[in-house]
Design a protein around this nucleic acid. Structure first.
Lengths: 244, 244
DNA sequence: TCATAAAGTGTAAAAATAACACTAAGTATA
DNA sequence: TATACTTAGTGTTATTTTTACACTTTATGA
């Protein structure tokens, strides 16, 4: 077995929620011709970066996230690795690899992570590149194999929220039950019954009702809730059910 | 960004079922000193292999599986990637890397797959190395970070069988309900109520009762069942439930 | 004070879960 | 050939969960 030519990177699919739709963080990728200055590449990618030598991949993913959002200790989970030898063989991707000094023949292994962030906690910034939230339903063609990566991340998210209380990560610390319901609806792309939804979450002990209400809304203000990780950690063993 | 020194491999956690316990395929790793002939390494690993240049990782995983079992089209799923820079820094692992001509300083990225095979369909063989089924509960210390990989694979399996009908992969084509129940019990390490279990599986349309019975057993013979992938594929959209 | 807008609430029928013990049907053997 | 052995196979009841469905409450703003 000989050493093969390859690189290691992480891609972070950052999901956000704008109050009505599920969004994902997208970065512009532009390249100007060295001589003519002409714009030769102008498309979009997910957020990602290479992994430093001797850097664990989880650390690399956290670094990408921190550089983008200034946030630390954010929900971040590895979901799949993409390493097909042809994943970056489209002309623009080859051009891009060359322009950044990489061997375009090499395999680039990327480990996919997804992350959930409450957009109101975040001020975006990234090395002067244009970063922005885009509704998942409006994401067009992305560079590399990033459409595939986004699809897989979304599928993972849709499944994961059925069994794990991670939707809170997309909301402000204090939120209303309607907001919580909206998050599920946005991720699954379906509508849920309000009364049945509330009956269900009423069973979640880790959802704590506050003595506070919404303010500044032109209608009956809603009660606010918080997610208690403590209560969740204490009770999650009981929650394990043997559904087959 | 410069090219870093690293390798890409796959590790396949092959789960089997022996009729009462969940088993995993384990390989001996031995190394003799070149001069003295003395046995310097004698431990065990999961089954895995490097990924060829230009080979997709799924293909590499299938290749490992095929070389071991002669089986093709077996259930095989990627579950996690392990790439910590120190994952192979124990003395025996360093020795092993050197002896196989690899730079022991390099990072070895391994993509973990797990697979379910009905042990009665399999005749083991692997490049003259000693391969054998070991009950998961009896697996001792493994080389590399393979105990961690096994743990993660098992955790994934325990979760996955709650929501997806993959336990059939561990059984002969025709199986009894008791055998099916035993598989769940072996994977979860708990006992289930027979009557309640049967009520539950009775709702699975893709579980087809045959007009056949067990033979050669010294007691009332059980009805045989098969899993119908066709029926499953047709109904699985309906099965998507919005449990939160 | 009235219009507007979302919050918040209950019931009944159907389905799923959980706990629990005996009879049936083969083989083996005395 | 009768009996022992062993696992297969089955039903009920109480509780919980799910599903479908519509009106009242409470704040703001005009």
């Amino acid at each position: 077995m000989r050493q093969i030519s390859q690189y290691l990177s992480v891609d972070c699919v950052l999901f956000g929620y704008n109050g009505s739709e599920l969004e994902v963080l997208i970065v512009d990728r532009t390249l100007n011709d060295e001589k003519s200055g002409e714009l030769v590449i102008n498309d979009c990618t997910l957020t990602g970066n290479h992994v430093y030598e001797d850097e664990p991949i989880e650390e690399a993913a956290n670094r990408v996230l921190f550089d983008l959002t200034g946030l630390d200790n954010v929900f971040l989970e590895q979901f799949k690795t993409f390493a097909h030898p042809n994943r970056l063989k489209r002309p623009n991707d080859q051009l891009w690899l060359k322009s950044t000094g990489r061997n375009p023949e090499a395999r680039i292994i990327t480990v996919g992570f997804y992350s959930l962030v409450a957009t109101d906690k975040v001020k975006l910034q990234w090395k002067g590149r244009n970063v922005r939230w885009v509704p998942v339903s409006e994401v067009g063609e992305l560079a590399f194999d990033h459409n595939l990566i986004l699809e897989e991340a979304l599928r993972t998210l849709q499944t994961r929220i059925k069994y794990e209380p991670i939707t809170f990560e997309l909301l402000p610390d204090k939120f209303t039950l309607t907001q919580l319901q909206n998050v599920y609806e946005a991720i699954w792309g379906i509508e849920l019954d309000k009364r049945n939804f509330r009956k269900k979450v009423a069973r979640m002990k880790y959802l704590i009702q506050l003595d506070e209400k919404q303010t500044g809304v032109a209608h009956k203000p809603a009660r606010l809730y918080v997610f208690s990780r403590d209560v969740y950690d204490k009770t999650k063993k009981e929650l394990f059910d043997f559904t087959i």
